[in-house]
Amino acid sequence: MALKGLKLVGKPIKALQLRHVDAGSCNGCEQELTALGNGFYDMQHFGIDVVASPRHADGLVVTGPVTDTMKRPLVQDWDAVPEPKWLIALGDCAAGCGVFQDAYACHGGVDGMRTPDLVISGCPPKPQDILQKIALWRKTLG
């Protein structure tokens, strides 16, 4: 039985534990991500949660246009997430189409680090859109 369990390693899981990294957000995406924890959306009910450590996470959810100062902490957080792992760009800034693209201290989204596995656009995206997009995308993982 233990061996059967081990076969799951490397395959997508149904629950999704995410670590959040703010890489220069205006706090709009944070507010809407926080709203997913209120009783209207209750993301935990769907097996989705924001966890305290990248080592406990299945992936990162990144907000903001990736400021230069946050670039290294972001990469370090990504490296600390165990494989298999996924990268979610939340909001237009992280997706590379936000209004701060051209600012001198911005790297223009997460793409410079790695192509995101899921892009949730919007400025900020509405909570129900975030939840729906994550739910649909999770199904495609098998």
Binding site: A23, G24, C29, E30, C106, P124
Partner: peptide, 28 residues
């Protein structure tokens, strides 16, 4: 840590085009 360089980005822009940026300095 979240310094984007907004004041620099605004320099030289037509004032009529800065609304989306000013609106997003802070989500609160």
């Amino acid at each position: 840590q979240n310094h984007r360089g907004v004041e620099g980005q605004l320099q030289g822009r037509p004032i009529g085009s800065v609304w989306p940026l000013i609106s997003r300095i802070c989500g609160a």
